[in-house]
C-alpha cells in the first residue's frame, strides 16, 4: 500500500503486476456498480451503488499517484455529498420507486443509440489521440504530492481558488434561501395564544386519552373527547358492550346461606 501511495513523480511506464490486477478488478466492479445504479428501481439502492463507484475511483486515484485526491474523494465526495443525497431521499420518500414502463416513446432506444454513438466516437478519438505513457516527472515536481498541489493551488491557480470560495459561499446562502419558509403572519406571542384560547371557549386543553375512561375492559369501547364511542378501539373478535351499561358486580355463585331455625 505504501509503495502505491509513494508511487508518484518518478512513476515509470509499467506498473507492477499487483497494480494491474487491482486495476482490472476495480474496473469491473465500478462498471458493474454503475450499470446497477442505472438499472435498480429504488433510489436508496442507487445511492449505495454510487458509493461503491466512488470508492473504486478513490482507489484508482491513489494508484495513479494522487493520494490527496483519493482521500478528498472519500471524505468529501462519498462522505458528505453522497450522504446529502441519502438525507434527501429519506425526506422525499424512501420507498419511492420508478415504474419500469417508459412514458416517452422511443426514449430508451434513442438513449441507447446516443450512448453507443458517443462511446464509439470517444473511443475513436482517444485511440487516435497521442496518449503517451506516464511521463517522467520534472525536477520541479520532486516534492510529495501534497506540497506540489498546494504550491499549484496557491500560486498558479489562486484566482480560481478564490472564485471557488465565493461559489461555495453563494451555494450555502442559496441553499438556505431555498429551504426557507416565509412566515405569512407575525409569530403569535403567548398573549395572542391566550387571547385565542379565551375566545374559543375552551380554556383548558383537551384531556389526554384515557382521562375520562370509566372502565378499562378490553371489550368496552373507548370514549372520544366529545363523548361518543370509537368502534375502532375494540378488537373485532370481541363483541363490544354498551358503554353505558353498568356492569353488574361479578360475584361467584355462592350456595344459599344455611339459615338456622334457631335464628328464626
Amino acid at each position: 500500500m505504501s509503495h502505491i501511495l509513494a508511487a508518484t513523480p518518478s512513476g515509470t511506464n509499467t506498473d507492477s503486476i499487483a497494480v494491474e490486477t487491482v486495476f482490472w478488478i476495480l474496473a469491473f466492479i465500478s462498471v458493474g456498480a454503475a450499470l446497477a445504479m442505472i438499472l435498480v428501481r429504488r433510489a436508496v439502492h442507487c445511492a449505495i451503488m454510487l458509493a461503491v463507484v466512488m470508492l473504486c475511483l478513490a482507489t484508482m486515484y491513489a494508484m495513479q499517484g494522487a493520494p490527496f485526491l483519493a482521500f478528498v474523494q472519500i471524505i468529501v465526495y462519498t462522505g458528505a455529498v453522497l450522504m446529502l443525497f441519502l438525507f434527501v431521499v429519506m425526506l422525499i420518500g424512501i420507498s419511492s420507486s420508478d415504474s419500469v414502463v417508459e412514458t416517452i416513446k422511443g426514449q430508451r432506444a434513442a438513449a441507447g443509440l446516443a450512448a453507443i454513438g458517443l462511446f464509439l466516437i470517444l473511443i475513436l478519438s482517444i485511440g487516435h489521440a497521442a496518449i503517451g505513457p506516464a511521463a517522467r516527472t520534472t525536477a520541479a515536481n520532486n516534492v510529495d504530492n501534497l506540497t506540489g498541489l498546494a504550491r499549484l493551488i496557491f500560486t498558479t491557480y489562486v484566482f480560481p481558488f478564490e472564485v471557488t470560495g465565493a461559489l461555495l459561499i453563494t451555494a450555502a446562502v442559496g441553499a438556505m434561501v431555498l429551504a426557507h419558509r416565509e412566515r405569512t403572519a407575525p409569530k403569535p406571542t403567548q398573549r395572542d395564544l391566550a387571547a385565542r384560547r379565551l375566545v374559543s371557549g375552551q380554556l383548558a386543553p383537551d384531556p389526554a386519552p384515557g382521562v375520562y375512561a370509566l372502565h378499562d375492559a378490553a371489550d368496552r369501547p373507548a370514549l372520544l373527547p366529545d363523548g361518543s364511542t370509537s368502534e375502532l378501539s375494540v378488537s373485532q373478535t370481541l363483541a363490544p358492550r354498551d358503554p353505558n351499561e353498568e356492569t353488574p358486580p361479578v360475584r361467584p355463585e355462592l350456595p344459599a346461606p344455611a339459615v338456622t331455625e334457631a335464628e328464626s
Binding site: 458517443l118 466516437i121 478519438s125 487516435h128
Partner: peptide, 16 residues
C-alpha cells in the same frame, strides 16, 4: 437532455 446528448456527440464527431 437527449437532444443535448446528441448535440454533444455531433460536436465531438465534428472535432474528430
Amino acid at each position: 437532455a437527449l437532444f443535448m446528448f446528441f448535440g454533444a456527440a455531433l460536436l465531438v464527431f465534428g472535432l474528430l
